[in-house]
Simulated scan of single mutants.
Amino acid sequence: MDFIEVDATRCKGDGLCVLVCPSGCLEADDRGGPVAVDPAVCNACGHCVAVCPHDALTHSRVAAAEVRENLPTWPDAAVVDAMLRGRRSIRAYKDKPVARAVLAELIDVARYAPTASNVQEVGWIVTDDPAKVRELAALTAAFFAANGARPKYTAMWDRGLDYFLRGAPALAVSYVPADAPFGAADCGIALTFMELAAVARGLGTCWAGLLTHAAKHSAPLREALGLPQGMVVEGGLMLGYPKVRYPGVPPRNPARLAWL
């Protein structure tokens, strides 16, 4: 198969595929159809295939069978805004397991998050086992106890209170290659996708910042996570069903804003 193939009976020469190509590997021919002028710079984003309303273009690096139909319209802005404003960081969870199938759905959504240059290098370590989450919390607590940071949380841990992973029944950790130039941003965006997908399914989440920090310095924690060699943890989410519902949305500080 060529880099791109165009069905001349379907192509209308509207130039949409050329317009949306972010890398400049496509140009229009004299009929307005696409021509691959520099395949080496293509990052396989799939924009050219996804934008064509005529299903006229196939791409050797974009699996046609995996192209999903998009929504014809987006949800109402008021609904989306209310969801974004109403999301809370959940630190109290029901004693109810999170099904592995639900976690798999969240990963499937999160993999559609944008990454720098479409590298798609974000990896995941996920557990639906509360005992494993407790083990990871203990290793996180041990790290902070050893270096004297967060003494209040250490004292609470000693009293049987988990302020590190909050007794969450499930946990998702994201990682990237240590030399990924935008790895932290890529993981943060992917985790945000996951968080919003989780909220839409009735789950609560809280960012696992303490575990993320500990994983950068604690070899036992990285080993317990099974972190692949050469990778670095850049974020995590506690996941579970909230014990409480928040009927109100508290205020936030005014935006620090400068118009240019």
Rank of each mutant, 00 (worst) to 15 (best):
D2F: 09
I4K: 03
V6N: 03
V6G: 01
G13P: 05
G13V: 10
L16W: 07
G33W: 04
G33N: 10
D38P: 04
H59F: 09
V62H: 09
E66D: 13
N70K: 14
L71C: 11
P72M: 12
D76F: 06
L84D: 02
I90T: 15
I90V: 15
A92Y: 04
V98L: 11
L103S: 00
I107L: 15
D108I: 06
T115F: 00
N118P: 06
E121P: 02
V122C: 07
P130F: 05
A131M: 06
K132W: 06
K132M: 14
K132S: 11
L136G: 02
A138E: 13
A142K: 13
A146R: 12
A149T: 13
P151V: 10
D158S: 12
R159N: 15
G160C: 09
Y163P: 04
Y163S: 13
A170K: 01
A172E: 02
V176K: 01
P181Y: 05
F182C: 12
T192L: 10
T192Y: 02
F193D: 05
M194G: 03
V199F: 12
V199I: 14
G204L: 07
T205W: 00
W207E: 09
L210G: 00
S218E: 04
A219F: 04
L221R: 03
R222C: 11
L225K: 01
L225A: 03
V233R: 00
E234Q: 15
G236C: 08
G240C: 09
Y241W: 13
P242Y: 01
P242F: 01
P242H: 04
P247Y: 04
V249R: 05
P251R: 02
